[in-house]
Design a protein around this nucleic acid. Structure first.
Lengths: 223, 223
DNA sequence: AATGACCGTATGTACGTACGTTCGGTTTTT
DNA sequence: AAAAACCGAACGTACGTACATACGGTCATT
């Protein structure tokens, strides 16, 4: 079913046309949508998607219940937007930081640093992404999986190159190795507390080092 | 509020007293409770706790909706029982397998093998444990956390001993190392498919090796 | 310059439903 | 006959969503 409601595509057509004219007191359409999505993200991260009622989201975002449905046509669509934005931002950020880095070992360090850093800066969003993938269904679920798949492929490519360059004869399963890394990274939301624990950079360094030593079997600095 | 419904305590008081007199009652009661909990576990693992309605659980377990409430006084209590049983079984199994193993490196191998093996044999239950901790509230939540804490302490002890014996001067954070391991293990439910992937033993070996190389920085076999 | 059609934004309210839980009673077991 | 196990039917509620409406701008027409 195709919605007749607005929900414009960001950074696409209609954007300039509408935004150029006037930036309201309450901000542009995208700004307001962002504000709402951020409020929703925080609430969902706190209580879970199932228990985050649209009424509670509305209260959190300081809009009326009906007002929410001006920005998306269903609760699931809202969750989809949250996940899509977070993941796109994660992947784009990573792609950008990888520019010019050719050594695969360094690429992995960059990838882990980018992930942990992005996590520390957007904890709620990444928590929602880690926890609520299966709350999406149908096409939205497929699309969310596709985004994850891109991220996996990117990382898997780095892992492959590390193996090929350093231990091409290794019998370790590269898929398993990659999933172990993702497990380590995606589990962060269960325990990492930036107030209590060490800095994201420190954590990232330890994770990188452990992973690299783990797959290479030896230190990559000297030894 | 204290329930007046049955829900006997397993392996506690009442056990001998009741079991000696009429062993088949207790047996059948627990068997039936188990059957119900297993059905619920499978459903919750499939669709999530929030979307697993008591009506659906009842259908899955082939009992009436009201009949469920003969075994526990609330949905949350049901989830609590599922998690408690799975975790107790996990920890007891591990404690047993650790008997007589003194080398901490070997202890870690045993721990990982036990976890992966237990996971492969009880995927639904461990998936629920990994995913639905926060669906518990109040005292049940505290108790579930306590069980996890025991598991953490057990593992952390092994990690500590590995560090102390092999790299006492290492600056790696042992808490972070332990949480990375848990991340790797607890993320299994997101990707591991026993039909598609290698055997649990193979996976466990790779995880152990990677982790050990990771924290030791060198191979523990030769090198 | 005034008018009026139109659109985007926002709201209050109500509908239908699915949920967790309870109650009173019936069947089954001991 | 007492107790345990189980059930059908209902209750109250909270939820996602739809509907009817209103306000304030924009813009083409007058």
């Amino acid at each position: 079913m195709i919605s007749h409601r607005p929900e414009r595509l960001f950074e696409h057509e209609r954007h300039s046309e509408a935004a150029n004219r006037k930036s309201d007191i309450r901000g542009t359409y995208d700004e307001r949508l962002n504000r709402i999505l951020e409020a929703a993200t925080g609430l969902i991260a706190r209580v879970g998607y199932g228990r985050a009622s649209m009424r509670a989201v509305a209260k959190e975002a300081a809009v009326s219940l009906a007002g929410l449905y001006h920005y998306f046509d269903s609760k699931e669509r809202m969750l989809f937007l949250i996940q899509t934005r977070a993941f796109n931002s994660l992947v784009n950020n990573l792609r950008e930081k990888l520019l010019g880095v050719t050594d695969p070992v360094e690429q992995l360090r960059v990838m882990v640093r980018a992930h942990v850093g992005h996590f520390a800066a957007n904890m709620a969003a990444l928590k929602v992404c880690s926890h609520e993938l299966d709350s999406l269904t149908g096409a939205a679920h497929d699309e969310a999986r596709r985004l994850r798949r891109d991220y996996y492929d990117l990382t898997r490519g780095i892992v492959d190159r590390i193996y090929d360059e350093h231990t091409p004869e290794s019998t370790l399963d590269r898929h398993v190795a990659t999933m172990c890394l993702f497990g380590t990274l995606n589990w962060l939301y269960r325990w990492y507390d930036p107030k209590r624990d060490r800095s994201p950079t420190t954590i990232a360094n330890q994770i990188s080092s452990q992973f690299l030593h783990g797959v290479l079997g030896v230190s990559n600095r000297g030894c």
